[in-house]
Design a protein around this nucleic acid. Structure first.
Length: 275
DNA sequence: ATGCGGACCTGTTAGC
DNA sequence: TGCTAACAGGTCCGCA
């Protein structure tokens, strides 16, 4: 499941292959994704040069001449640069064939992803307009976080995952950052102290940045689609380790559900708040 | 406005 | 062994 570091890694890897390339045509094999792929996708993008690749949260933005392709990988989506003669497999939804050699192939078995087209500034697109700040930007500070959490009673973990305050913090990185910050995932957000907020901001940035660094090392492999996601290379302290010993205190890690998400934490290192 | 639960979808794993 | 059921994941939507 691609999180922000994976999306960033994929984007960086694609730049040398597709920036300034021209779209010859696109082929839709299966338009069913989270929203249907626009029927007229081909007429929207054919013949246009890819002018810019960027990212907003986990949304990839391919700016063409008359509009922008918005691509989300959901949880099982992949975007690979392949030779034109690569045979299509079961869950290959779309090919974007370039006039030079090669094509971009979108694959998504679980269909949680999206491919959309907008002729407007993507920043005002309904999917992007309400997103929180980029976690690795200078806008993401303890002051900002505290301003956002001060009147919210919701648990801190689902709140930082919701994407309204900060984007790109999925279940894995939320759990890891909270562990490294010593903050209980259930802590009501309004009780977050400034010191905790500082720590949390720093740890979110640390785990994401480290993961991007790791992703970079497998960059050349991803083109063949067998590159390991960054978080596999990353040492995970809590995610997926419920019941196993805490790497710090050796007590068994606790698993709970929070906002319908499995959540692992150390009850000793991330003590609960008692009112 | 806030916050919660439901929906989407299917490959993988656990349990019978 | 073969089947079924639960689970995982990100994000939007609708209802209280």
């Amino acid at each position: 499941m691609p999180e922000l570091p994976e999306v960033e890694t994929i984007l960086r890897g694609l730049v040398p292959y597709i920036l300034w390339a021209k779209v010859d045509q696109s082929i839709i094999r299966c338009k069913k994704l989270r929203w249907p792929i626009p029927e007229d996708l081909n007429s929207c993008i054919a013949g246009q040069t890819i002018l810019e690749l960027s990212r907003r949260g986990k949304y990839m933005l391919f700016r063409l001449e008359t509009g922008t392709l918005i691509i989300h990988l959901g949880m099982s989506g992949r975007l690979c640069f392949l030779n034109n003669d690569e045979p299509a497999k079961k869950h290959d939804h779309v090919d974007i064939i370039l006039t030079q050699n090669g094509m971009l192939r979108y694959t998504d078995p679980r269909r949680f992803g999206a491919i959309l087209w907008t002729t407007e500034n993507p920043a005002i697109h309904p999917l992007l307009s309400a997103l929180g700040v980029e976690p690795l930007s200078e806008d993401f500070t303890a002051e900002y976080l505290l301003r956002c959490t001060s009147n919210r009673r919701m648990a801190i973990k689902p709140l930082i995952m919701a994407g309204k305050i900060v984007v790109g913090v999925g279940n894995i990185y939320a759990a890891e950052a909270l562990f490294l910050s010593g903050i209980n995932p259930s802590l009501p957000a309004n009780l977050l102290t400034y010191t905790q907020g500082e720590k949390l901001v720093a740890m979110i940035q640390q785990v994401l940045e480290f993961s991007i660094t790791q992703g970079g090392t497998t960059l050349k492999d991803f083109v063949n689609s067998d590159g390991l996601p960054g978080y596999f290379a990353q040492k995970l302290n809590v995610y997926g380790r419920g019941g196993l010993p805490c790497v710090v205190c050796t007590k068994a890690l606790t698993t709970c559900m929070l906002g319908q998400r499995s959540t692992v934490f150390c009850a000793h290192c991330q003590p609960e708040y008692y009112p």
